[in-house]
């Protein structure tokens, strides 16, 4: 059985039994016995590779939906805080380095492309390019984190890290100032707090993603994924793209709101 046909069947099967929800046949067919020749990647409790692959892919999608709500709590805090203190948020956003943020967006989008190409290479059994694209994705991920650290360092130098060191001294405050200096400083600090939590959490996801890709790379070198079983690459890809999507929203919400509070 070739890799392509495995993939095809998995899709066909999934589409089929979900299309007529409820009345369709259950996912397992009586023919799919527990006996017979086993694929080395097939776990004992699954009947077939298709079933296993479908379960893993569905599991990742569900996990990502759950992850979305995890970031969702922060997006809610962001919405409420920005609604309450639009001027402070616009002012604070202006202290981020726009071109670094834009560059990082491009880096991350590129890594998404290489990740997608890695998944494609695994589908077509091109092992050499699979390894190449994995390496590229990891490198781009590291570059992203490097740029992010640079930005953090710049914020640190400007005393913009929330906490006892935080200060707006030396920054020209807007005039007129909404509220007193102390309140305004507090609200700017709140922005930076949200900024560091959101980007920090995002960076944590990147680090986990890089780790996962590293493991997959080692396995790929060891000759895994030669036999048409590429579900781990595919679901790692889903995760990577999700992290990318989070950034796609973080970028405008954090970097691009420096126009005053009118919006």
């Amino acid at each position: 059985m070739s890799a392509e046909s495995v993939h095809h069947d998995a899709h066909h099967d999934a589409a089929h039994h979900d299309a007529v929800e409820g009345q369709a046949a259950a996912p397992r067919s009586p023919q799919a016995g527990h006996s017979g020749a086993h694929h080395p990647a097939l776990a004992h409790h699954f009947d077939s590779l298709e079933q296993q692959q479908e379960a893993q892919s569905l599991g990742m999608w569900i996990f990502l939906a759950s992850e979305l709500l995890f970031f969702g709590g922060l997006f809610t805090v962001y919405t409420v805080a920005r609604w309450a203190y639009p001027e402070a948020f616009a002012f604070a956003s202006g202290h981020l380095v726009l071109w670094l943020g834009t560059l990082n967006t491009v880096v991350l989008l590129t890594s998404s492309l290489t990740m997608a190409l890695a998944v494609r290479a695994s589908q077509t059994c091109e092992l050499r390019s699979l390894r190449g694209y994995l390496v590229l994705t990891i490198v781009l991920g590291v570059v992203f984190l490097g740029i992010k650290m640079t930005e953090y360092y710049l914020d640190y130098r400007e005393h913009l890290i929330p906490g006892p060191m935080f200060s707006l001294a030396g920054h020209e405050l807007p005039d007129p100032l909404p509220g007193g200096t102390r309140e305004f400083t507090r609200h700017v600090e709140l922005y930076f707090w949200i900024y560091f939590t959101m980007t920090g959490l995002h960076a944590l996801h990147m680090i986990i993603g890089i780790g996962v890709l590293g493991v997959l790379l080692i396995l790929a070198r060891g000759g895994r994924y030669t036999t048409g079983y590429f579900a781990p690459i595919e679901i790692a890809g889903l995760y990577w793209h999700f992290v990318d999507i989070v950034w796609i929203f973080l970028f405008p919400l954090l970097y691009l709101i420096h126009h005053g509070g009118a919006a």
């Binding site: 999934a14 589409a15 979900d18 299309a19 569905l58 999608w61 990502l64 759950s66």
Partner: peptide
């Protein structure tokens, strides 16, 4: 992807 995947993504 299957309709189920759509449902998962959209419910998130």
């Amino acid at each position: 992807s299957s309709r189920l995947t759509w449902v998962v993504a959209l419910s998130g």
